[in-house]
Nucleic acid binder design. Sequence first.
DNA 1: CCACATCTTGTTATCGATAACAAGCACGGA
DNA 2: TCCGTGCTTGTTATCGATAACAAGATGTGG
Lengths: 351, 351
Amino acid sequence: MAKGHQMSTTRRLDANGRARTPSMADVAAHAGVSAQTVSRVLSGHPNVQPATRDRVLASVDELGYRMNNAARSLSSGRTRTIGVVVLPTVDYSGAAVTHGVESAARRAGYAVNISTASSPDPAAIAAAMTRLDRQSVEGIVLVVPVATGTDEVETIARRIPTVTIDGSRTMSSEVVAIDQFEVGRLATEHLLSLGHPTVWHVAGPDEWLDSTGRAAGWRAALEAAGREVPPLLHGDWSPESGYQAGLLLGRIPEATAVFVASDEMAFGAIRALHELGRRVPEDLSVVGVDDIALAAYCSPALTTVAQPFGDIAALAVEHLLRRIDDPTAPPASTEVAAQLVIRSSTAPYAG
Amino acid sequence: MAKGHQMSTTRRLDANGRARTPSMADVAAHAGVSAQTVSRVLSGHPNVQPATRDRVLASVDELGYRMNNAARSLSSGRTRTIGVVVLPTVDYSGAAVTHGVESAARRAGYAVNISTASSPDPAAIAAAMTRLDRQSVEGIVLVVPVATGTDEVETIARRIPTVTIDGSRTMSSEVVAIDQFEVGRLATEHLLSLGHPTVWHVAGPDEWLDSTGRAAGWRAALEAAGREVPPLLHGDWSPESGYQAGLLLGRIPEATAVFVASDEMAFGAIRALHELGRRVPEDLSVVGVDDIALAAYCSPALTTVAQPFGDIAALAVEHLLRRIDDPTAPPASTEVAAQLVIRSSTAPYAG
DNA sequence: CCACATCTTGTTATCGATAACAAGCACGGA
DNA sequence: TCCGTGCTTGTTATCGATAACAAGATGTGG
């Protein structure tokens, strides 16, 4: 292959004399070593003479060499990239988890590819996973707290190590989850401990496992205390749906305590209650979930269950990298505890 | 190269008899055509006989073939990937823009690589861009509304088409921005039109261009109306910083109208005012920026300036793809208009 | 009926890195 | 002194796709 004259020290030219981004071979030539040695230096191989290493690094610097990841991937079979599947909602938890995953991955030297599932349906999730698959990600984090036990998803998860955050456990994928049952129990027991005869619940959509987990914890806490289990209300996580639920609850005189499955819905509910003339927490206590940034600042400051999103994201990445290193390891599950944060939206039962 | 016996119709084996994921050559062999023809079918080349195309697609299906992106990139020099640089904050605007970019990119057939800058410093941003560069992204969207005119950033932007959302214009990068001056003007004029003698302002940090733009618009509106320009307060976008600003403002009797540079800070300020016994909007009108989901549901419902995050993300991607197609095109800038949303946190001046 | 354009398909070289293997060298013990 | 061991570096083959070129088949107008 004719290389053309190498006229400048900082710019290689191709056969047609056009500028070309320098390759490892260019660095090797410049440093007077082989390409393999350059490769060794750049990937931190131990057995390289310090003098050689310095020379190579100097050439890298001088030529402004940057490694071509496509070539490295093709050759080594490793992309050092993981994929994240998220839902198209702009909510606090999703953003927090995505950031957590990105930073944990970066610390481990992995890049992150993001793919949004257009809906929570298994088909859409499988499509998002397929897009990541085509990018040859080495692992996938599903930030998709919905039941995903379909064949399509399972097929991909069998081939690509997959960790689900707050999702359902399948044959092939690992789950790292906040213990949502515990979330429901914590919130409910807090309200019961304040003397409320029973606790109402505004749940999220049934497809979300968080929803069902929290509802189960709520129900169990009530039953353990021998209390009546009131009918369940449902929202879709939006403040508006919480508002609609609040319009109902506010008309029920015996409702004095509500556990709402998210902070955003909780504030929606509080607004509706307020409009109906029912005061929070004097007339009705409200507990939310997430501990969003505004929880302490909107009025009343919201009692809520904080979820350690950063921790769980880091844990998910840790599990994922372990499975990437040893694909034969059987998938495991881990649960992380949530924490009740008591503020001003809950008060003792006032008769 | 010995291929080994191909015993199964669905699983190719390598020379050692181990399972191997099928390559284009395997599909070609299975369909009785050349690899090039498979390539043509899969990349939608028009000149392929329908019968051949069907046969290839059937083989693709049967073998479960998935394209190896690393190989395609290496060979074609195109990765069909764009990078997004975001800041490590979990705020509404960042998440909304990131989602918008991802969905616009996906529609255009591009994958998205995400890279978090550990801080808003130019060095951290340059580092994030370098990581993306190594991934061979074809373009970068900087979701980084801070002044970034350093050499490092500029050097990378000169090589990789770069579009900044709400950031500073440099020699080499394009900017797509919401007109922040207009945001400040809209909010301030709304408050003035309610009869308030003047309008106070809680700005974001100075490094953020949004901050300075909004503050400039605020100041200009006051000056155009011939009003006194009160001293500027500063927050850091967090609700807590808004709360601190509110503690100050609430003690200033002549402050009857405040324009706060974000909804989250606005709610923080409102809480402080509330604690000081100053009612919103009766005693003090407040306007925020962003129109977050909770804006209409926390109390009082917040008058705010809505920013079209989805639109701007789509526009940014559009510009970016245009520059990827034609790198010689000179970088341009576009501004998008924001919109005032009037709710209940603002009221006429009461004397 | 021939020359030429067009459609369809195949062949070969190449992208830029790494793995596997090999070779040269220094060093220490028998 | 000789040989094996370990360190350092180089050589060659290869990853899986696409670009560029080539060639046979088909059709079309003069």
